[in-house]
Amino acid sequence: MASAKELRKQIGSIKNTQKITSAMEMVAASKMRKAQDRMSRGRPYSDHIRSVIGHVANASPEYRHAFMKEREVKRVGYIVITTDKGLCGGLNVNLLKAVVNDLKKLSEDDIEYDLCLIGNKGAQFFRSYGGNVVAASSHVSEEPQITDLIGSIKVMLDAFENGEVDKICLANNVFVNTMTQKPTIRQLVPLDPSEEEEIQHRWDYIYEPDARQLIEGLVTRFIESQVYQGVVENVACEQAAKMIAMKSATDNAGDLIDELELVMNNARQAAITQELSEIVGGAAAV
């Protein structure tokens, strides 16, 4: 059995760790509030633009943008949004698992893929997993700016327009609530028609001034807003997951300390008993 002194040292070090994790929990909680605000403010725009794009994809316009044409899929581009830092539970692992599942399915069908990675963790993972990474950006701050992201998105969009990839998917965590973050993979282009029934017949918009220009602008805006919202949402997920992970780490440290204290008291008690019996034994011998 370890001596009381050793145990005391171990308890001390766990207590220090507990202090750190509980501080991190509180930091994450306060950051989460801000990130959540930012996320919920951006949501209406990205939801509305998605429904507008759904309508546009449903229309039968005189001008069909490259982004609206379904092509035979030979190569798929993935935009994967992960966090920069770890210590946030299974958040990144769950997402990457979902992505890898998808990639495996593609490989079975002999479809190749390109990756565009936003966030450090994804980059680290795919460095060991392999895969063709065409763009990566990391150190996206907690208040992401759309300009930070445009570069890597553009690489993907250009590849799509040049016919190098035939489909672009966005993979990120969607914030359901503080306890639940759902890894989601969505198709960005070609545009997904919405499934509202009332507008299934043939119809088209009036375009002012010019269909081509409008749709191009709208689609670019759409993709930017989707990726931006994905990043913002991922930040909120990261903080929430971090808070939960740190909370359970703090709790676990507490449990561990309780257990060790019990063992230490036992050891101390045993030592006292032994000493006493030695003294008594010694006295009897005299």
Binding site: H55, A59, I206, L214
Partner: peptide
């Protein structure tokens, strides 16, 4: 104000997309 002029839109307007 749309890209090519002022617009007044009332209920039942035909589908329209403009800047």
């Amino acid at each position: 104000s749309g890209t090519i002029g002022e617009l007044g839109i009332m209920p039942g307007h035909t589908p329209l997309l403009t800047g």
